[in-house]
Design a protein around this nucleic acid. Structure first.
Lengths: 342, 342
DNA sequence: GTTAGCACTCGTATATTTAGAGTGCTAACA
DNA sequence: TGTTAGCACTCTAAATATACGAGTGCTAAC
């Protein structure tokens, strides 16, 4: 059963309005605002139909209607304009991002910040899993007094560092030698591959180096794994307060608590890794805690390997068009960093 | 005019109770709870006196009393027990921190997390200013395709890294040479000193290196300075919800907004850098936004140079004794990292 | 098929009442 | 002279009652 064009127009008008205001919208509002020149009574009839078909819901008899998840889905898939941004806004966006990303050491934080500021939502950025990234170099730096710092530099420019204690103070030159040996060995491999490869080395190989390297790699891998659930960065958590429906302290609190259970968020983002753009509306989310939220994520990839997954989380009545546009332009900005300027 | 011992006991009882419950405390409560065996009526008289002297305030006629900032000050200075923790709790603390700090690459985040978890307050940690830290090594790592990563390793194990573009792909060996030259030049100096020193180099010195080094140092310094207000890490922001007096959405919101204006927090922490332990109660804070909060900070130093400043921020009715104890044990744990195990 | 009219519903905002916690004062007591 | 029981008084917070209004669904006319 297909829905008449007028019904769709009405539905779109309702969703648009609800996304703006957050209050159930009545027939009068639609009659006045939209360009469907028809009386409130007529619209009421259509609305009753739309409700029967599951697109609208009524909080209570004397309230207007609000869109259901199903309605948002339809809205996102076919109703909404591709972008709700004007040309000026878009060029502002581009400029803004260019500035943001100009001198960046910590891309992840910048993406999180940019994303939340532009969307006025809470942003979620998945820190790329160090386990699956190619190593570029290992460098041991002597800090003196039996302390050393082991640096793992990855292909993508990420750096992880670990403080280790040495049994005795070791000559800088010797540390460099180990560093070089390790680098030669691991370069181009992921942590995991490097570790298994190293285990297979025959004992004939320079033993001390190997033992040292094994210890290091093991340590790092453990560390990387144990901090698995923390590989997530948030931005703009308090943006949720902008939404009147979160003025209730418990709602707000629950939301902030949800943000703290990074396991859940991690799962969601990790699940969407394969998708260039993922939109999960309300009950479409698997996680119970997210059943009344929407999560929109994008994955940026290069040479068919994902570099990063990032997105926003917020009320189902978020401005999907705007969010999608912004995600798009952030991807593009990352292109600039990782490709053009290379 | 000195205050009688009984008055002090009553005041302490009131503060203790108010810290626990957050609700104004009446004469009955004190009469029952404390070991001052005296009738409510008597306590009322004393309370009236204490109010006159500015130690107590009454939200309204028919409510109990709550401590004033002045009362908290007295409490902190002379009334409270040094530690409200039992021996078991303390050994738990020590164990907890030992675990936390065992395999740490990011000390700052760990301190923030530990602090907020243990105190149930919001923690604030000042990231040590890279400008004034001694450099240990500079290492340039080739990432391929005209990209390179410049690593600045500091004496204390901190690492800052910057992605740079190279005009053309440069031989790894050559990059190592530059790295070594730079390291030799900067080792033991702060960024600022290194920069001025380098400017004074005569042009006879290997010119390319110098130019390259100058550019790098300049870039890093700019970056470090421009991110000045961000040198702060928070933990447990939502702990504020544990306090019933912050159930009001606006209070909570204001608090979270305050946390976002890192300038203010930075100022506060930086101001207290010289003090091993600083307790600012309510109006004692200079900042208007903090006039109804308390900020307790500790500075950890080594060889008379501060390594880190960290503390908590929360309602004036925080459990000062507990907070101080915990700050103390965190300092101690850091000793373990930076000294004993060295 | 569309629309004006109207009775009806129900949530929110406002006013009113009630209950109780705590006080200050007075007068009696040790 | 300091302590205490007794009691009237105050003021908040919770509970209850009232009023308002936005929005609906239905009916009947166009």
């Amino acid at each position: 059963m297909s829905i008449s064009d007028r019904k769709l127009m009405i539905l779109k008008a309702i969703v648009d309005d609800y996304i703006m205001t957050g209050t159930p919208v009545g027939s009068r509002t639609i009659a006045k605002k939209s360009d469907i020149n028809v009386s409130p009574a007529t619209i009421r009839n259509e609305m009753a139909d739309l409700e029967e078909e599951g697109y609208l819901e009524q909080p209570h008899t004397s309230a207007g209607r609000k869109p259901s998840d199903k309605a948002y889905r339809l809205y996102v898939d076919t109703l909404m304009r591709a972008s709700s941004l004007t040309n000026e806004e878009i060029s502002f966006l581009k400029q803004y991002m260019k500035n943001k990303f100009s001198d960046v050491s910590n891309v992840v934080e910048t993406v999180a910040e940019t994303l939340s500021e532009l969307t006025n939502l809470t942003s979620v950025v998945l820190v790329p899993d160090a386990k699956n990234k190619e190593l570029q170099r290992i460098q041991i730096v002597n800090l003196g007094e039996h302390n050393a710092l082991v640096l793992f530099v990855f292909r993508d420019g990420d750096v992880k560092n670990f403080r280790v204690k040495m049994p005795k103070d070791i000559d800088d030159q010797y540390l460099d030698n180990i560093s070089n040996w390790l680098t030669d060995f691991v370069k181009g491999k992921t942590l995991e591959v490097a570790l298994t490869d190293m285990k297979e080395l025959s004992m004939d190989d320079i033993d001390v180096y190997q033992q040292f390297g094994l210890n290091l790699l093991n340590m790092v891998l453990n560390n990387v794994e144990s901090s698995g659930s923390k590989n997530i960065v948030l931005g703009g958590a308090k943006n949720i307060f902008n939404y009147p429906e979160y003025q209730d302290i418990n709602e707000a609190r629950n939301f902030l608590t949800l943000l703290d259970t990074k396991d859940a968020l991690y799962k969601v983002l990790a699940d969407n890794k394969d998708l260039e753009l993922s939109i999960r509306i309300g009950k479409e989310n698997d996680r119970e805690e997210l059943k009344n939220m929407s999560v929109v994520t994008a994955t940026y990839r290069m040479d068919n390997k994902e570099i990063g997954t990032f997105g926003v989380i917020g009320p189902t009545r978020m401005d999907y068009a705007k969010v999608i546009t912004i995600l798009h332009y952030i991807s593009e900005s990352m292109d600039t960093i990782f490709k053009n300027e290379k």
